[in-house]
Design a binder for these strands. Structure first.
Length: 765
DNA sequence: CAGCGGTTCATTTTT
DNA sequence: TGAACCGCTG
């Protein structure tokens, strides 16, 4: 008897191989979290590994929380001693613990995108670089890339050729780093990069961690970037008991520096590594999985995997071609309503996925009109709201006096009559005195030519901050938050405004203070530092509250999640794939592949039903633009999908594309659901196409289900076959075997179609 | 200094 | 469409 008995053979191998490096290539829905948690349970309960000798790293806090929960049910109390966390959280924690050894100030602040941008603005201004030459956005992006390539400012400057822009950028990088250090802050990239560097130059500290973490587990390995890879390599170097779980087909963060080589080259980096493939999918119906497989097969750059399932074929996918984005929203709402008539489904079983956050607006309007309860994952995060960031800025400044960016944020919030001129003046004065802006407030009498009115306002602010600093020493976290809200005059300002928005803001702050109370109760060490750290590293996915609501989110946010009912909207060229990808693909065709993987991720989120949609006309940038259906739609075998037209018939350009997936409304109206494929002796693929009786009505009674196909005989290249929809055609190409077999057939009017044998009703012609 | 109105610009994706 | 930024006025 072993804990691992409940796993399938591949899963068991992945979980039981605990000595040496293991790479688990886990397809979507193949039970990778199960493997990870059972592996941990196996280590602790059956191999007597001490919990604190295990480190498990995930991508999101949510994944970490889930893993901890599931491990807890398997091993009980001991789970609390296992190190489970996100890369960023773990790095932040180690950096703080080892701050002294690393020569860092342990009170460092973690800067998010907003703070980073504010700092960059300041840098660009100080270097007199006009916005047209280099915007803060672009500068941040390029510097982030440099950091993730482990390039220090000095190295970057060296590499910068005589190219003017590069040299300029090097200057910006240097100034940015200097200022970051001056305000005692680290950005997201730094958390990783800094720890990797410090461990390299402090071998004794590294040794300590290497000895402690005898067993390492990494989730979502395909999304690790260079510094993350290096960190893992450092930590695993001693024991080499490293288990990385990932799926190259689900790598969707390369734009942010995730390096697919980390997964593709695993065997090279760890020659003794064992590779385990998890290819049985436990999540989706046969048709959904077939669609996913068909789409991802268009990618060249992959290790190659073929997912299979024992689940029933399920319902066909449905593609709604809508005339406008508004109609698309209505289609989704109507369809959802229909589904909810079925008592087995509730609102929380459904999710709408889209490529960009901006697309949520049209959907939201329609949902509000219909009174459907929904939550948005990833819009504006709670901790990104202005009022929350304001209050947090007070807290940050109390912890880190050097944090000028936070000071600037709050020195005149709420209004204290301290304007831009004064702030810029204070900054210059502080710089001249080599002090932080907060410290400079203490020596205002040395500021020449300061008029008494301004001085007065500044002194009032100084008094406030000193008062709060005292409060910090005596009060607990929640009371401190309350005091700041009150003493700063923030509450007063909101009440004076007396608007619904102000009311909402006040509520949000009440929520923040409630969070603080909760934090005090839950944590062993509820320090202000740790509270801020937790909040800085919180992502929008982590905030999704359970409840009876429909979920709206980007495809990126959906990674790792699953829903019985999934809508993927906005399947249009230049939206999904994005215009950037389309553009880039003109010179580098592989550029489209990340978008395709994203589509693959979306499809594989669905357990039972999947709806796809696009709008021929859509509001973007405030105007109506016309669009074309996404190329990805052509990659889904027609047999898997029913097409329906929503709204007025619309023209679309047929272009040079040989097989537009769209039929006219007359045709599509008559398209009934496809019959399940004929039973075949699949070679190595175990599809079971026993349609549940509830679907019986969907099956065309005229099809002979027992007809046996001798594929070798009549499906050879050059043969003529009869398709129930397109008539007679000639087979021109064939790929795959058994149920995965696809044929390319030339039908009348030079119509070239790719069909899946498993779903097409083909007969010898 | 604050508040206003006008203009411009942007939409990937996020730890 | 909207947020974000700029410049003018009181």
């Amino acid at each position: 008897m072993s804990i691992l008995d409940g796993l399938n053979p591949a899963q068991r191998q992945a979980a039981a191989t605990i000595d040496g490096p293991v790479l688990v290539l886990a397809g979507a829905g193949s039970g990778k979290t199960r493997v990870l948690t059972y592996r941990i349970a196996h280590l602790v309960r059956e191999k007597n590994v001490a919990p604190w000798n295990i480190l498990a790293v995930t991508f999101t806090n949510k994944a970490a929380g889930e893993m901890r929960e599931r491990v807890e049910t398997l091993v009980g109390d001991q789970s609390s001693d296992i190190h489970i966390g996100t890369f960023h959280a773990i790095c932040a924690r180690f950096l703080r613990i080892e701050a002294t050894a690393f020569g860092l100030d342990p009170h460092f602040t973690i800067y998010d995108e907003d703070d980073r941008r504010a700092l960059m603005r300041r840098v660009l201004k100080s270097l007199d670089i006009p916005e047209e030459d280099l915007g803060p956005r672009s500068a941040i992006g390029q510097i982030s890339r440099a950091k993730n390539a482990m390039l220090t400012p000095a190295l970057f400057a060296q590499q910068a050729n005589d190219n003017n822009i590069q040299r300029r950028l090097a200057e910006v990088y240097i100034a940015y780093e200097t200022q970051l250090r001056q305000v005692n802050a680290l950005d997201f990239d730094d958390l990783l990069v800094e720890l990797v560097r410090q461990l390299k130059s402090n071998p004794d500290v590294l040794r300590k961690y290497q000895e402690r973490f005898q067993y390492l587990l990494v989730d979502e390995y395909q999304d690790t970037n260079r510094p993350q890879y290096l960190l893992i390599q450092q930590l695993a170097a001693l024991h080499r008991n490293l288990c990385c779980v990932g799926d190259d087909d689900q790598s969707i963060y390369q734009f942010r520096g995730a390096d697919i080589r980390n997964i593709l080259d695993f065997e090279r980096d760890y020659p003794e590594a064992q590779t385990v493939r998890l290819e049985q999918n436990y999540r989706s119906t046969g048709r959904i999985l077939a669609a996913a497989n068909a789409v991802i097969q268009n990618n060249q750059d992959r290790k190659g995997k073929q997912l299979w399932t024992q689940e029933a074929a399920g319902e066909p996918l449905l593609l709604a071609q809508c005339d406008t984005d508004r109609r698309e929203a209505r289609f989704i709402v109507t369809t959802l309503r229909q589904q909810l008539m079925d008592p087995q489904y509730s609102l929380s079983d459904a999710a709408i996925l889209y490529r960009t956050n901006a697309q949520s607006r049209a959907l939201e309007e329609e949902l509000q009109r219909s009174g459907i309860n929904y939550i948005i994952v990833g819009g504006i995060r709670f901790y990104e709201r202005k009022e929350i960031k304001d209050l947090l800025a007070y807290l940050r400044l109390l912890v880190n006096h050097a944090d000028d960016i936070s000071l600037r944020r709050i020195i005149n919030t709420p209004k204290r009559g301290i304007g831009d001129t004064t702030i810029t003046g204070l900054q210059a004065f502080a710089q001249h005195q080599s002090l932080s802006m907060l410290a400079a407030l203490e020596i205002l009498d040395q500021w020449p030519g300061l008029n008494s009115r301004t001085r007065n306002s500044l002194e009032k602010f100084r008094t406030l901050m000193n008062q709060l600093a005292q409060a910090k020493e005596t009060l607990d976290l929640a009371n401190l938050g309350e005091t700041i809200f009150e003493a700063s005059g923030y509450r007063q300002q909101l009440q004076d405004e007396a608007s619904p928005e102000a009311e909402a803001r006040e509520q949000n702050i009440a929520q923040l203070i409630a969070d603080m109370t909760e934090f005090c109760h839950n944590e062993d060490e509820p320090t202000l530092e740790f509270f801020l750290e937790e909040k800085s590293l919180m992502s929008s996915v982590d905030e999704a509250e359970p409840g009876d609501a429909l979920t709206l989110m980007t495809l990126h946010s959906a990674k790792g999640l699953e829903f019985p009912l999934i809508f993927i909207s906005g399947l249009e060229e230049n939206l999904f794939p994005t215009s950037r990808a389309v553009e880039e693909a003109r010179t580098r065709p592989a550029a489209i592949e990340e978008e395709r993987r994203l589509f693959y991720v979306g499809i594989t989120r669905a357990r039972q039903r999947l709806w796809l949609s696009y709008a021929s006309r859509r509001f973007a940038y405030g105007t109506l633009i016309t669009t074309e259906p996404s190329r990805f739609l052509n990659e889904i075998p027609a047999e898997l999908m029913v097409v329906r037209e929503e709204g007025n018939k619309t023209e679309y350009s047929r272009g040079a594309r040989s097989s537009p997936p769209i039929k006219t409304s007359q045709q599509s109206a008559r398209i009934t659901r496809q019959a399940p494929p004929k039973r075949q002796q699949a070679k190595g693929i175990h599809y079971e196409y026993d349609a549940p009786s509830s679907q019986a009505h969907a099956i065309d009674p005229h099809i002979d289900h027992n007809q046996v196909i001798d594929e070798e005989d009549f499906l050879a290249i050059g043969r003529w076959v009869l398709h129930n929809r397109w008539g007679k055609g000639k087979i021109v190409a064939r790929e795959g075997q058994g149920n995965a077999m696809k044929l390319t057939i030339l039908f009348a009017h030079n119509q070239l179609k790719r069909v899946m044998v498993a779903y097409a009703q083909l007969e010898p012609a």
